[in-house]
């Protein structure tokens, strides 16, 4: 029982990270109907930026929570910029072309970022240890279940970020624009919504959340690797599809389910099926409920 609860706790903290990434996929898909394959690479770069910046920030101050927040903020800012430029340079010129071309470009951007980071003078192909900014400690122990301070911080911050996002999408003017564009781009443009600005803003928001997720992953499992983004991205995408793509609460639920499923697979089956479970879930969802848990079924019109 204690083991089960421990897996539950670990699964939830992993799941909240997946949820953060999944929200980014879901937002972009809702607005552009594009699977942003490069999103996973933005997550990876979020961790890489942190890896570069932490030693620079660490020089005057001791490792502390404040340092963690500084690195998190800087990495989110840089990834927001990156997201803006990815959209501006690679996706915007293709706005009017067939979706398959956008998909191929997205794959191209993803491969480019991955291999560019692998270059020796950028980051290198060898996994590095992420600098320790908060020393891990068990803060809460109950009936054999240990909850570490890292898990608390990660889950707490993830959920606060998602609540902020919910606020932005539903209570601000730009959020209104986002919802309008995802409903119908042309009508939104006719009604005076600055579509290009809204799309840029969506990419910036999604990339900032991805950077946060990357920082959290690197803090919990202290390793940075140029290849880490692909698998994280794929799993988060599965989470987004599971919850109903284009639906933000759905992405959160999907992320939590994915995290739990992965943790239980590792705990009770075998860790070599860690990556297979995500795709198995994806295939089952697409076969039995393609719209996802919270999604609406669309009818194809001629």
């Amino acid at each position: 029982m204690a083991q089960f609860l421990q897996h539950l706790v670990n699964g939830l903290s992993l799941g909240s990270i997946y949820a953060l990434i999944a929200v980014g996929y879901s937002m972009v898909y809702g607005i552009l109907q594009l699977i942003n394959f490069a999103h996973g690479e933005v997550v990876m770069l979020g961790a890489v930026f942190g890896f570069w910046l932490a030693p620079k920030f660490m020089y005057p101050v001791e490792p502390s929570l404040g340092l963690f927040f500084a690195v998190l903020g800087a990495s989110m800012f840089l990834c927001g910029l990156l997201g803006f430029f990815i959209e501006r340079l690679a996706y915007r010129p293709l706005r009017k072309s067939p979706r398959i071309n956008c998909l191929i470009t997205a794959i191209g951007v993803s491969l480019f970022l991955q291999y560019f980071t692998q270059l020796e003078f950028i980051f290198g192909a060898i996994p590095q240890t992420y600098p320790e900014m908060i020393s891990q400690a068990t803060v809460f122990s109950f009936a054999g279940v240990d909850i570490s301070n890292l898990q608390l911080i990660v889950v707490g911050l993830s959920f606060s970020l998602m609540i902020i996002l919910q606020f932005v999408v539903y209570k601000t003017k730009l959020g209104l624009g986002m919802r309008a564009v995802s409903e119908n781009t042309e009508v939104a443009a006719l009604l005076g919504v600055p579509v290009n600005k809204v799309i840029s803003f969506t990419f910036i928001l999604g990339s900032m959340l991805a950077a946060a997720a990357g920082t959290f992953v690197a803090t919990m499992y202290p390793k940075v690797d140029a290849m880490m983004g692909t698998m994280l991205g794929m799993k988060a995408f599965v989470a987004a599809v599971l919850g109903g793509i284009g639906n933000l609460p759905g992405a959160v639920i999907g992320g939590l389910v994915m995290g739990l499923a992965e943790e239980f697979t590792v705990g009770y089956l075998s860790s070599s099926f860690r990556d297979a479970i995500a795709f198995a879930i994806l295939i089952l969802v697409l076969l039995f409920r393609p719209a996802g848990i919270l999604g609406k079924t669309k009818i194809e019109k001629v």
Binding site: A90, P93, L94, S97, P98, N101, I104, T105, I107, G108, V109, L111, F112, Q114, Y115, F116, Q118, L119, E120, F121
Partner: peptide
């Protein structure tokens, strides 16, 4: 150059191709 630029060029080919001659 001492670095493996091959896959980078490969990925760039894909992007540029889509932008200029899809």
């Amino acid at each position: 150059t001492g670095v493996d630029l091959r896959m980078v060029i490969y990925a760039l080919t894909l992007i540029v191709l889509m932008l200029t001659r899809p």
